[in-house]
């Protein structure tokens, strides 16, 4: 065996020894999932592709600021600044530094959004979907027209090739940029061996220049807010095929008091049960609710008028208002109720 290969095996063996205690955890998670939510291989693949792109773009931008504005001349950093590269991701992925709840939650939302968009495109063409927003461009209120234009621009920037998932730095929520930027900076310091101060300064500048208002999610929320404010009796009920996915989700979120991310997550759950409850709580008429369900479902399930019609709206409203409570409160409530249950059993 040549020396290089031998060294490689020794390195891998050492790395594995460090991580050996997590093997059983990983296997257990695959064997005994705690929810009924099914993640197909496409979603897993998309999530990793998206994360790789997000980390790479952030690392590239940090390198660009460091090399162009702060005078750093390291060869590797110059190369990443020019051409990008997955080096930071390769270092961070196995480290566990990207396995943070907020990042994982964001990945779930983005991949599910991608799934929903793909399902919508089976029913309506990309052109027709994009043209849904153009009707707001002539709105009487210039603020609405301007917000619609902003959303169109943001969407066109964020749309990748059909079927692919694209991460765009401008679209990432600030919390995610922050959660990735600092580990990415540390990875760049380690990879390049250069002093950390300049790269830290570059990361600070990246954070300061990030404009949340330019992202699709905020543009959609802003347009949803303006549309709901100018709502008239004749305004149609929001629908993903009439408003586009981002605006539909933002409008439903606004009407229900939930966040857009929650609405998207609900659509990933079995039979979209919570999503249906949200539609009922927001008082969507039967035909509209059935049509929205059919547009967003993968085709495996059917929602009938009888099932939807029999939902008690008051109970739906109460459930939704519970889900709108802060996460920390909901977590605490669940934990406390579990504690009381176990006390009872004693």
């Amino acid at each position: 065996m040549d020396r290089t290969k031998q060294n490689d095996i020794i390195r891998r063996a050492r790395a594995m020894a460090d991580k050996a205690s997590f093997v059983a955890d990983d296997f257990a998670q695959a064997l005994f999932p705690r929810t009924d939510v099914v993640f197909n291989d496409r979603m897993r693949s998309h999530a990793l592709q998206y994360l790789r792109r997000a980390v790479s773009q952030i690392a590239q931008r940090i390198c660009q600021i460091a090399t162009r504005d702060l005078g750093v001349t390291h060869q590797l950093l110059l190369s990443i600044a020019e051409e990008g590269g997955d080096q930071s991701f390769a270092l961070l992925q196995p480290s566990g530094l990207l396995n943070k709840p907020e990042i994982v939650q964001h990945l779930l939302v983005k991949t599910q959004q991608n799934e929903l968009a793909a399902r919508l495109l089976q029913k309506i063409s990309q052109e027709d979907l994009e043209s849904t927003l153009t009707r707001h461009l002539d709105h009487d209120d210039p603020a609405v027209a301007q917000a619609a234009m902003g959303l169109l621009v943001a969407q066109s920037r964020a749309t990748g090739a059909a079927g692919a998932i694209e991460a765009c730095l401008a679209d990432l929520p600030p919390e995610i940029v922050y959660a990735i930027a600092w580990p990415a900076t540390a990875a760049l310091v380690r990879l390049s061996g250069s002093p950390g101060v300049r790269l830290q300064q570059a990361a600070e500048r990246l954070l300061a220049e990030h404009d949340e208002s330019a992202g699709v999610a905020r543009k959609a929320e802003r347009l949803a807010q303006l549309l709901e404010q100018t709502r008239t009796e004749t305004n149609p009920v929001p629908h993903p095929m009439k408003d586009g996915l981002a605006l539909f989700v933002a409008r439903l979120a606004r009407q229900s008091g939930l966040s857009s991310d929650q609405i998207v997550t609900f659509t990933a759950e079995p039979e979209m049960a919570r999503f249906i409850i949200v539609l009922c709580a927001a008082d969507y008429p039967v035909q509209e609710a059935l049509s929205i369900y059919a547009a967003l479902d993968s085709g495996d399930h059917i929602l009938t008028a009888a099932t939807y019609g029999e939902l008690d709206r008051d109970r739906c409203v109460a459930l939704v208002s519970g889900w709108a409570a802060p996460d920390a409160y909901q977590d605490a409530e669940r934990t406390l109720s579990r504690d009381y249950l176990s006390e009872d059993r004693r």
Binding site: E175, Y178, E204, A208, D211, E212
Partner: peptide, 9 residues
């Protein structure tokens, strides 16, 4: 905390 500019309802 994030030292970032935010834009939110």
């Amino acid at each position: 905390r994030l030292r970032m500019n935010l834009s939110r309802p």
